[in-house]
Computed example of a mutant assay.
Amino acid sequence: MADEKPDIAWRVVGGLLGLVTAWGAKKILGYVWVKTTGKEPPVDSESDEVSMAEAIGYAVVMGVGMSVAQIVVNKTAKKRYTAWKALKTPKP
């Protein structure tokens, strides 16, 4: 496997998916934060207007939410890409 060339198409697709997923997850999690807390997400966690509990809570929600979104999207996309590539590869 070490001699195998990296699949450039997958690297491009994966990179773009990563960007889109991060942007979308941030928007969705920000929306959920506003609906749940009634406040805008803390922009500056060092501000005196943001409590430590709020800053930590937002960091945990964003960290877990972003990680879960990336895992789900990457695994699903990789599975579909591999299946699509198998269809295009001629069988011997």
Rank of each mutant, 00 (worst) to 15 (best):
T37A: 04
K27H: 04
N74P: 06
V68S: 02
Q70R: 03
Y31V: 07
A22H: 00
A59Y: 03
D3G: 04
V61E: 01
K39V: 15
W23A: 05
V60F: 10
P92Y: 05
T36Q: 02
A9G: 00
M1C: 00
E4N: 08
K35G: 07
P42H: 09
A9S: 11
P6T: 09
V43D: 11
G30S: 12
D44I: 04
S47H: 03
P6N: 15
A22Q: 05
G57T: 06
P6I: 05
G24M: 01
L17Q: 01
A53N: 08
L29V: 06
K78D: 11
D44G: 04
D44P: 03
M1S: 02
G30L: 07
E54A: 14
A55N: 11
G15F: 03
A86C: 10
P42V: 12
V43E: 14
V64S: 05
W10P: 05
G24L: 07
W23K: 01
E40L: 14
P92S: 10
K88I: 08
T36V: 06
V60M: 02
K79M: 03
P41F: 06
T37I: 12
E4Q: 12
P42Y: 10
S51D: 09
A86W: 09
Y81N: 01
D48L: 03
K5N: 03
T21P: 09
K91R: 06
K78W: 12
M52Y: 10
D44A: 08
T21S: 15
W33D: 05
V32W: 07
P92M: 05
A83C: 07
A53Q: 11
K79N: 05
A69C: 08
D3F: 11
L19K: 01
K39H: 14
T37L: 01
L87K: 15
K26H: 09
Y31L: 11
A86T: 12
D3R: 08
Y31I: 03
W10T: 07
K85C: 08
M1N: 01
V72Q: 11
S45M: 10
G57Q: 03
I71W: 10
T82P: 05
K88P: 00
A25N: 08
Q70N: 02
K85A: 02
I71E: 06
G18E: 00
V32Q: 10
I71D: 02
A69E: 02
G65Y: 07
I28K: 09
W33N: 02
G63C: 12
K27L: 06
P42S: 13
D48R: 00
A77N: 15
T76N: 01
E46H: 01
